[in-house]
Amino acid sequence: MSDQPTRFEIQLNGEVHQVETDTTVLDLVNSLPIDPVAVAVERNKRIVPRSLHAETTLEAGDQIEVVTIVGGG
């Protein structure tokens, strides 16, 4: 286990982002400066339902989109 990398890269909202091994979607969302209930998450273009955030573990190279509601016409 000592030769396992402890951190890897994902794409978060189009930017390179470092996460630790075993980080879940919920961990990631909780680390953001926003109310976690106000977001929806896509992983590799597929929605991760809120009910699965806690049990979905991120993998290297994942493309994650975290979106929220903003003002618009």
Binding site: N13, E15, D35, V67, T68, I69, V70, G71
Partner: peptide, 12 residues
Amino acid sequence: TVAIRRVDLNSG
């Protein structure tokens, strides 16, 4: 009407 956008990673 509202829009859906990426969360601003610096200021939510």
